[in-house]
Design a protein around this nucleic acid. Structure first.
Length: 553
DNA sequence: CACTGATGCGCG
DNA sequence: AAAGCGCGCATCAGTG
């Protein structure tokens, strides 16, 4: 049963129940207006009694306050996220009605309610959620691939719940361990404006070796000039280019750059800004990437370097259950293409299986070739190996080739569940002619062709990356349901604390950790079945029960 | 001074 | 060894 929530101008909340009428269409079947303060209690009561699906404009506008009041919900429809999917989807051709121009429903997510002293700053709600909801339902029910589209909008919405719940709980983070890691890597925390001791040492060596006592190592232009003066003929200061040169300045310079990166991205300032009360609370942005992957804003949560993962420490008496899906994208490609040979290769370690097939000689080659196939590599070792893969796995290769050709011709490609790629004209970078801007111009290739090929690589990857994102949403959704069935939503229950494309971290009471690990694996099987039915493709996960994140893998 | 684009590097 | 997808963020360098 659907319950739609809408905020009224006076601050009260309107709650509308929807049921199927005689025609089979959803109809409003009861309206209630309640004071905002009563909402958490009402939601909790209905959760117990009515198995509701909450319909609201935008999860960050509603759910954080329910969570603050100790209320969790099992299911929702996030109208804004679903709108974004349907607007582009070839599986929902009639949406929005009349092909309306982008409007308020097409804006990015609301900022989560920021507390401003006594008052919470809540952005306006989006207009007429009831009409939007019914239009969306019509579009989904009319879809020629309704089942898949239903799964996608449900999974996307559940993702929004998980994102809000993870932000609410936060990642358990030890400032003490973080400080120890930084001190070991960089030296003790310096006074503001100073460089840590080990960075100063490395910089002294660089300046000496380059005979540049005043060198600012953080200015690429200045660094290139100094290196050139010393006979190191580089055109950039990228690691891999520097590594190719033999000079006493190179080793300390690379060491310095490594430390500088850690300091500015995840140093003490980051710790002060982002970790409070032993928790790191990034702002997750479900659907923030065109392919359907999540993005984050603030704190760089999806780029946590391995060097600081030791600071993610389970609470006393708790464990972290860290799980990642092995070789997810190649397996997604296997399922999408129905490639029997690749399915056989994936019965164990997929890359070893590719070696066993005779396509390539080593596991490393198998990996490079596979990535090259999915990304559209044409040059270098990767580009060389792709044809060898194509001979052994023609069906898989045909699928990505077809997606690439569609994109080159300006067409739209779709994920398995029905997320469609943008058109090249929608892409701000493409209209500016940037395209493959950073690459050197390919001799004799017209810019238009270059842009077309670049877009083909995007659509080639879109189907795989996007379907992998759908698998991951289904995996998380299945696991969340299992956790709630087994433990409810009470405070000492296992809960998600982190998600990273193909990896989840669950914070669990130590006594429950092994059981959680089993549910993680079960959920992966369920996700595979939801997307690919009985097709011969498997999704093994590696699970580790650890005290801190660095102990996994 | 504020803004924008390029650079470089962290993650999958 | 280094070219091939998707991101976010800090910093520098150039422009308005």
């Amino acid at each position: 049963m659907f319950f739609l929530l809408r905020r009224l101008p006076d601050g009260d909340v309107e709650l509308t129940r929807y049921e199927r009428g005689a025609s089979g269409r959803l109809e409003a079947a009861g309206v209630d207006v309640i004071p905002a303060a009563d909402l958490p209690g009402r939601v909790a009561a209905l959760e117990r009694e009515a198995s509701p699906r909450w319909v609201w404009d935008d999860t960050p506008r509603w759910y954080p306050r329910l969570l603050d009041a100790g209320v969790t919900v099992a299911r929702c429809v996030d109208l804004r996220l679903v709108h974004a999917i349907l607007r582009r989807s070839t599986a929902a051709p009639g949406f929005p009605v009349g092909g309306a121009a982008p409007g308020p429903w097409d804006v990015p997510q609301a900022v989560p309610g920021e507390s401003d002293g006594l008052f919470e700053v809540v952005p306006d709600s989006l207009p007429d959620p009831a009409a939007e909801f019914l239009a969306q339902r019509d579009a989904v029910e009319a879809s020629p691939t309704r089942g898949r589209l239903e799964l996608l909008v449900a999974a996307e919405s559940t993702g929004a719940l998980i994102a809000a719940e993870m932000r609410h709980r936060g990642i358990p983070w030890s400032p003490r361990v973080h400080d120890e890691l930084l001190t070991a890597a960089l030296g003790p925390r310096p006074t503001p404006g100073e460089r840590p001791a080990r960075m100063r040492d490395a910089l002294d060596e660089v300046r000496q070796a380059l005979e540049a006592p005043d060198l600012n190592p953080d200015s690429p232009a200045e660094l290139i000039r100094a290196l050139n003066r010393a006979g190191v003929l580089v055109q950039s200061t990228r690691q891999w280019e520097l590594q190719r040169h033999e000079h006493p300045a190179i080793e300390p310079l690379l060491r310095y750059k490594k430390m500088q990166r850690l300091l500015v991205a995840n140093g003490w300032a980051w710790l002060d800004a982002w970790v409070h009360g032993g928790r790191f609370r990034p702002d997750y942005v479900p659907g923030g990437v065109v392919t359907g992957r999540w993005a984050t804003s603030g704190g760089g949560a999806l780029q946590l370097p391995r060097a600081v993962r030791g600071a993610v420490v389970a609470d006393p008496g708790w464990k972290l259950v860290v799980a990642d899906a092995s070789q997810l994208e190649p397996r997604i490609l296997t399922g999408l293409s129905g490639d029997r040979s690749m399915a056989r290769a994936g019965s164990g370690d997929l890359y070893e299986g590719i070696v066993a097939s005779g396509a390539v000689a080593t596991r490393a080659e198998a990996k490079v070739a596979m990535l090259g196939a999915m990304y559209g590599a044409t040059q270098g070792e990767s580009g060389r190996l792709v044809p060898r893969l194509a001979r052994r796995f023609p069906d898989a290769m045909a699928l990505v080739e077809s997606a690439a050709r569609t994109g080159e011709a300006g067409g739209v490609v779709d994920t398995l569940l029905g997320r469609s790629s943008p058109r090249p004209s929608d892409d701000p970078a493409a209209s500016g002619g940037a395209g493959a801007g950073a690459l050197p111009p390919e001799m004799g290739v017209r810019p238009a062709d270059r842009d077309a090929r670049s877009w083909g690589r995007f659509t080639r990857n879109f189907v795989v990356q996007g379907t992998a994102a759908e698998w991951a949403l289904c995996w998380m959704g299945a696991l969340r349901r299992r956790l709630h069935e087994r433990w409810g939503a009470g405070v000492p229950a296992p809960h998600f604390v982190f998600f990273l494309h193909d990896e989840v971290v669950v914070h669990a009471p130590a006594a429950a950790a092994d059981e959680v690990a089993a549910l993680v694996a079960e959920s992966a099987v369920e996700a595979g079945r939801l997307l690919f039915g009985d097709a011969p493709v498997t999704f093994p996960v590696t699970v580790a029960v650890v005290d801190d994140y660095s102990q996994a893998k």
